[in-house]
Simulated assay, not measured.
Amino acid sequence: MSCALMAGGSLLPAQQAHAASASKSSSKAGKTVRKAKPASRTLRAPRKAVMAAAPARPSFGQIYGLHAVEDPLDLKSSVALVMDQETNEVLLSKNSQAVLPIASITKLMTALVVVEAKQPLDEMLTVTDEDIDTEKGTRSRLAIGTTLSRSEMLHLALMSSENRAANALGRHYPGGLKAFVTAMNQKAQALGMSDTHYVEPTGLSSRNQSSAKDLAALVRVAHEFPLLRELSTSKEHLVTLGRRQVAFHSTNGLVRSGSWDIGLQKTGFINEAGRCLVMQVQMAGRKLILVFLDSAGKYSRIGDAERVRKWISANPEVSAALPGISG
């Protein structure tokens, strides 16, 4: 078996306008579903059954046909990349050039910009109406008026993917949210992330887009910061909200399981992006970067990571081809 697995590595998506149009059409199609007026109350269909009849909005990867690209591991993610962190050698690649929405993987760049700005971690930040999600209408356990330290906001954004925490971090950047997004894009350019563009710090917007190869570069740099490693791989954190202590948990089941050696991670999900996951891991005695985008199914990104681990463990020539890494 070859040391590297490739599948559609050079495939690029269609124009974003096409995807947006198709996505809107799908959304409109879902809205045209109507319940037939029942003859009597006893014939009314259950609400859940009616809601289930509406078609789910397709991800951009589905619109582009990326899931039709086959790969040797039968991954459920339409985009995947496994790379040696030290040598940049690619062990597995599937549509790694495709540019897609990245959902809350965005928060990894948000955190990187915050720590590089060296803003005081003990400074208290307050959640305001400006942090309410008007993009997707998601809820949050951080009520308006909640005040936490910048460190805790970072922790919740990375570990629990808290959207209001991420937006509050952006608002409290010198120059405000607009300056923060500019800094995110400037950092992406400095890292050579030519496929990447951000419009806000949470990932709720489908206009936050990147490629697997770009995200691998981001993971490599973010892993250099001990604070980001610590906060992103935390399993649980207790936060004082008013008179209560509330437990927040990691969104990554592999972190919670404790069976993986994970140095840095971030998950993400919006309908347009599918399920996403990036990680730095120790595997087969090596330091690897794993990227999975647009995974179809609630647990499929976890399953894809397990498939990769099983494949590397079962094929000594994959890891033997890599030079030894100390430390």
Score class of each variant (00 low, 15 high):
113 V>S: 00
108 L>Y: 06
187 K>H: 10
114 V>A: 08
130 E>D: 12
152 E>Q: 08
144 I>Y: 07
138 T>K: 15
99 V>H: 00
168 A>G: 05
144 I>D: 08
127 V>L: 03
192 G>V: 11
156 L>V: 12
161 S>D: 07
159 M>E: 02
183 A>H: 05
137 G>L: 02
161 S>P: 05
139 R>V: 09
147 T>V: 10
106 T>Q: 09
155 H>W: 13
190 A>V: 11
138 T>G: 15
116 E>H: 04
139 R>D: 08
177 L>R: 12
156 L>F: 12
113 V>T: 03
190 A>D: 15
146 T>P: 11
169 L>R: 07
94 K>C: 01
123 E>A: 09
181 V>G: 01
137 G>T: 00
191 L>M: 15
111 A>W: 01
183 A>N: 04
104 S>A: 14
116 E>R: 09
107 K>L: 00
99 V>I: 13
134 T>I: 10
135 E>H: 10
127 V>F: 06
185 N>M: 03
128 T>N: 05
122 D>P: 01
120 P>R: 15
173 Y>L: 04
183 A>C: 04
94 K>I: 02
136 K>D: 02
183 A>E: 07
111 A>D: 01
178 K>P: 05
181 V>E: 00
158 L>H: 06
181 V>R: 00
179 A>N: 11
193 M>Y: 06
141 R>K: 14
168 A>P: 03
189 Q>K: 14
148 L>H: 08
153 M>D: 07
93 S>E: 08
165 A>Q: 01
116 E>M: 09
165 A>Y: 05
185 N>L: 01
102 I>M: 12
175 G>S: 10
125 L>T: 09
99 V>C: 01
130 E>F: 15
96 S>D: 11
186 Q>D: 11
107 K>A: 05
110 T>N: 09
174 P>L: 11
163 N>F: 15
144 I>S: 07
147 T>M: 12
133 D>S: 11
112 L>Q: 07
167 N>D: 14
138 T>I: 08
129 D>I: 09
160 S>Y: 01
136 K>W: 03
184 M>I: 06
128 T>L: 03
112 L>P: 00
140 S>R: 06
161 S>W: 04
117 A>F: 02
168 A>L: 13
106 T>C: 13
93 S>G: 15
192 G>W: 15
184 M>D: 06
155 H>I: 06
157 A>E: 07
185 N>F: 05
154 L>C: 07
93 S>C: 07
113 V>I: 03
146 T>C: 13
142 L>G: 09
134 T>G: 05
162 E>F: 08
173 Y>W: 10
112 L>E: 03
92 L>S: 05
118 K>H: 13
179 A>T: 14
155 H>N: 14
